[in-house]
């Protein structure tokens, strides 16, 4: 088997072996291979000398540059915080009104706010802050717990029905499921509630009668939270029922479902996850966006 032969194309000898027709040339290894093997090995050697590299016993070679990735990270975090301190300290110390009056600070709010909102709030309230089913639209003047900067900041801090000890707590009762109202009463009060934002709802006498009957039901059952005029009460998180904005939907079936089965929304507390400065920026970003509309 070991008969070397010369490959006519390349001129190199074969190794003399053959496997099912496959032969191999005895071509010497190209110089470039040795060159790059040595070059990469030398680079590695240099890198090992400079950087943390080889373990021994309980330690490792630290490298002559003394570089440590943990120190670099801690240091760069300190530096970044120092760079931002020019405005973070001012936002932390100033009142909402003062910040709103300061164009330079409001520029920071407009620059930073969208990222904070996008990374923390958009998942529920939507990238455009216009809300989703079950999650309020934040671009309107209709605020469950008050729309002043202080109230918004507090809602962000403690959340709604959250685990925070100071959490805002509210619940829409399940009037139908828990037997507080009978079905006809619910249908009437639904008609009444919808008429508050749809003046033209009463197209015929049947509907008008239902709205009138619903008015009484409302006064006896709903007004304690939503107010006698249905305009809501931010101190208990009761929504305004007379405007065009609905958290779960204002069509007949959805309003019926809300009255029948109740609602209890949830917003997490952000006190542990976002710094005070971040929460202030988010608050001002929302107020600013609303004003821009």
């Amino acid at each position: 088997m070991s008969v070397e032969e010369r490959d006519p194309h390349t001129g190199y000898l074969t190794t003399g072996h053959e496997w099912n027709g496959i032969k191999e040339l005895n071509t010497p290894v190209p110089r470039a291979v040795y060159f790059f093997l040595i070059a990469t090995a030398l680079f590695s050697l240099g890198y090992w000398i400079l950087m943390p590299a080889w373990p021994f016993g309980s330690g490792y070679t630290k490298g002559v540059l003394g570089i440590d990735q943990r120190q670099i990270v801690s240091q760069s975090i300190v530096e970044a915080a120092r760079d931002r301190a020019t405005w973070t300290t001012r936002i932390q110390q100033a009142s909402f009104a003062d910040i709103q009056a300061d164009p330079a600070l409001m520029m920071v709010v407009r620059e930073t706010g969208p990222r904070l909102f996008g990374d923390n709030c958009a998942a529920c309230h939507g990238a455009d802050a216009r809300g989703n089913k079950g999650f309020p639209n934040l671009t309107t003047n209709s605020w469950l717990w008050g729309g002043s900067p202080e109230a918004i900041a507090e809602t962000i801090r403690v959340g709604i029905n959250s685990a925070h000890p100071d959490s805002r707590v509210s619940q829409m009762l399940a009037f139908g499921r828990d037997g507080m109202l009978q079905r006809p009463d619910i249908e009437n009060v639904v008609a009444y509630v919808r008429s508050l934002s749809h003046a033209d709802l009463a197209t015929d006498k049947t509907v008008a009668d239902r709205i009138a009957a619903g008015n009484t039901v409302f006064a006896n059952n709903c007004a304690s939270c939503h107010g006698p005029d249905g305009k809501g009460d931010p101190s208990v998180g009761a929504p305004n029922l007379t405007d065009a904005f609905w958290i779960y939907g204002g069509d007949e079936q959805t309003v019926f479902d809300t009255v029948w089965g109740g609602r209890q929304g949830h917003m997490p507390t952000w006190e542990d996850r976002l710094s005070e400065v971040d929460r202030k920026i988010l608050t001002l970003y929302l107020v600013d966006q609303r004003m821009a509309q």
């Binding site: 194309h9 040339l25 010497p28």
Partner: peptide
Amino acid sequence: GRPIFSYRLSII
């Protein structure tokens, strides 16, 4: 239908 270019390169 060609031989392997280099047996030595295969080893390396």
